[in-house]
């Protein structure tokens, strides 16, 4: 009779602990894995090299700006003028999906091929503990990588360029980090979905990287082609028409989650950006010009501006994760 009560107690304890035990093991695997080291090195180098080339530009920006408030964030915004390398947030926007897929494409299918899945699922944990734990571990590992990269960049700015961040800049940087972690989560959830749906890890990796290529490189090309056909801003007769066509092409571009992330990043990191779209057209350019004369946006205002973007990214992540989750629940344990 006492065992009944004890069991109930163990039950409660066991319920919350399952995913954490899985996450702990997976995280330990991640940080000791070759892929973690490789990604850390590649990203570290990728962060340092553009900074090195951009440091002259940043220095001149810092000296021009009387109010040096945004000088620190320039580290993340300015792209080098001497070499064609994207700035940090564009770069992270393109590389983060790769990180997400790399840490999740073999999460479930490798357990299957290694024959560890029946053993794992015969332990007293719920099936969702496995998915949740693996997701959490991947997220923790990637957050670690991102923190390292941001740390390197900030350290470079503080030590080499002598730029000290203001409180507002730190808040903006942290908000951007959260946005970036969310951006990575989307791809992690997508990678997890692939690892559940595709039995062979190599195939899942190929599909994942294929989709990444499509989104990161051809995506914008295709979207701008589509936008050019559906909303030919150049043919606009009036300013009003041009503005509405611009709005349409921006909406088309937002089909790509990458656009969502890049627009939101630009707003969060740069207090002078007062609209979510980059001023590539006459109307927006004028608007931007007018507003640029005025006040810088406070962090609250910037955050309000990108709120819909964040909601959209959260929704996409939730959909991917739920799909992975439901599919895994329904699968046979046997391969």
């Amino acid at each position: 009779m006492t065992t009944q009560a004890q069991r109930a107690e163990m039950n409660l304890a066991g319920r919350s602990a399952g995913w954490r035990i899985v996450a702990r093991k997976e995280f330990a695997d991640h940080v000791s894995s070759a892929r973690f080291m490789v990604l850390l090195l590649v990203l570290g180098a990728a962060a340092i090299v553009p900074l090195y080339f951009a440091s002259d530009t940043i220095r001149s920006v810092a000296s021009q700006v009387t109010d040096t408030r945004e000088a620190f964030l320039a580290l993340f915004l300015v792209s080098p003028s001497s070499v064609p390398i994207p700035n940090v947030f564009n770069f992270v926007g393109i590389v983060a999906p790769l990180l997400g897929v790399a840490f999740a494409f073999d999460a479930i299918n490798s357990e299957r091929t290694d024959g560890t899945l029946p053993r794992l699922l015969s332990q007293p944990i719920y099936r969702d503990d496995v998915v949740n734990g693996k997701f959490a571990a991947g997220l923790a590992a990637i957050t670690l990588v991102l923190l390292a990269v941001v740390g390197v960049i900030s350290g470079f700015g503080i030590v080499r360029l002598g730029i000290v961040p203001s409180a507002d800049e730190v808040v903006r940087l942290l908000a951007w980090l959260v946005l970036t972690v969310l951006w990575v989560s989307l791809w992690l959830a997508f990678g997890l979905l692939l690892s559940v749906a595709i039995r062979r890890a190599a195939t899942a990796a190929l599909v994942g990287f294929g989709v990444w290529l499509l989104v990161a490189i051809f995506g914008q090309l295709i979207i701008s082609l589509v936008a050019g056909i559906l909303a030919p801003v150049a043919n606009a007769g009036s300013l009003e028409e041009a503005l509405s066509l611009t709005a349409l092409s921006a909406a088309i571009a937002r089909i790509l989650p990458l656009t969502l992330y890049q627009e939101a990043s630009a707003v969060l990191l740069n207090p002078t950006v007062t609209t979510v779209s980059t001023p590539t057209t006459v109307g927006q350019w004028q608007q931007w010009q007018q507003q640029a004369q005025g006040q810088l946006l406070s962090f609250d205002q910037s955050a309000l501006l990108v709120w819909p973007h964040i909601v959209a990214l959260v929704a996409l992540t939730a959909i991917s994760f739920a799909a992975a989750y439901v599919m895994f629940m329904r699968q046979e344990v046997r391969a």
Partner: peptide
């Protein structure tokens, strides 16, 4: 919680030692 199971094609995490593999199972069992 009360049933031990040996699957027909049992597998382990290859990069972990036998001891580490068993430790993981022990933890999962609280």
């Amino acid at each position: 919680r009360h049933v031990g199971y040996l699957p027909d094609a049992v597998g382990f995490y290859g990069d972990l030692t036998g001891r580490d593999n068993l430790r993981y199972t022990g933890r999962l069992n609280g």
